[in-house]
Amino acid sequence: MIISSAEIDSAVVALAPVMRRTPVVASRVLSEQLSADVWLKCENLQRTGSFKPRGAYLRISRLDDEQRSRGVVAASAGNHAQGVAWSATQLGIASRVYMPVGASIPKISATRSYGAEVILQGETVDEALTAAHAHAEESGAVLIHPFDHPDIVAGQATVGTEIIEQVPDVDAIVVPLGGGGLLAGIAAAAAVHRPDTRVIGVQAAGAAAWPGSLQAGEPTPVGTMDTMADGIAVARPGAVPFAHVSELVDDVVTVSEEAISTALLLMVERAKLVVEPAGAAAVAAVMSGQVDVSGRVCVVLSGGNIDPLLLTHVTTHGLSAAGRYLTVTATISDSPGGLMEFLALLRDLGASVVDVTHSRVAGSLRLGEVQVTVSAETRGPDHQSEVREALAQAGFLRS
């Protein structure tokens, strides 16, 4: 099932007129932190905001006239949905997309705006995919699988060919990993054009089907999934990607939710790039030490389609994980000046108060006491420890 050099070259030619050649930019902040030469492949700047149109367009463009007349159907949490909708519209083909009921509202709206009929069904992408399969069987529409087809892998391989052209002496490529289409394609391109380059896949620890599958020697479903990175939350790897990953990929690692949110925050704050949690997974891996980053490393930012409300939540989560956002619950005197004394101490400690909530009815309070919960910006873990210690010494924190 391994795609050939000729298939990759054909995909490059087919996609050149319609896909953006996304930039590869040097990351000074990551290079300094990791003592390596780190580059970012910005697929968040691709059409529809992710790498997905590459494979979707190639797959749909190769349908014959009779297949095109029946339309296409797909299932996705958002990025593949948008890729299929945009591609089908560009090619003049009707499209229907099944999305989980909890899919991001902006992704649903964007998919509709690209021309697809959107049906919300199932709690997960896998359940939506079951519905898409059923519709394909009933209607004759062609199922455009998000990752498990050679054309999809060949389309995603064009990301790899671009990286090798843009960073010709790249030592390692680190790639977010869900169903495996992107990782498989990049690994296939690297095997053809630069076989010495290491290729590493990165999964969210809360949705990590690949480690167990690789150990078992076949695609094996994971029992439960719990991650903010919905774009890579896939319960079972595809057979076509599995053939590529098991043969061509050097390693697969997992990252925590805290690592993902910290990476996303760094991209927004220092790289000035908006990425979604799945798109930040590879950055999380290099930042958290899960990947050896010696030499020249290219990190793929696979997508940037993030709900603004989720961005706010993840940014706060990232600040907390980085030691820059502290929430403490303190007990203060319910007398004039009690709250002012507490806030003055935080001010003197250099903590910037974000919000304050205050309760006189908490069960552990004595008469004349008030419970206060304060969120404050801090400068890092050491500063947080200093603030907590000072509050405890002043009698505001109870053990």
Results as ranks from 00 to 15, higher is better:
D226C: 10
Q384L: 09
A154D: 08
R70W: 09
A136Q: 07
V361E: 13
L346V: 07
I119W: 00
R296D: 02
I108R: 07
R194H: 11
G231Q: 02
D230R: 01
V253M: 12
A190N: 04
L326R: 05
I186M: 06
V13A: 13
S4H: 12
G122C: 03
V274F: 05
A131S: 13
A390I: 08
S399E: 15
V101D: 06
N44W: 06
R70C: 09
M1I: 08
Q90R: 14
K107H: 10
P23T: 05
L214Y: 14
V118E: 06
P100I: 01
A136V: 13
R347G: 06
S399D: 15
P241R: 00
I105Y: 11
A204R: 01
V192Y: 01
R379M: 12
D226M: 09
G201W: 07
Q33L: 15
K272D: 09
R398T: 15
H244C: 11
G155I: 04
V297P: 00
T373V: 14
L15T: 11
P168S: 11
A344H: 07
S10V: 10
P219S: 06
K107G: 03
R68M: 10
Q67W: 01
S385T: 09
A11R: 03
L301W: 02
R324H: 11
G238E: 08
L91P: 10
E218I: 07
S359Y: 07
I152F: 06
S31T: 09
L346N: 04
G179I: 01
F147H: 09
Q90Y: 01
S5R: 15
S35I: 11
P381I: 14
V97C: 08
R366P: 00
D251W: 05
S375N: 04
K107P: 01
P308W: 14
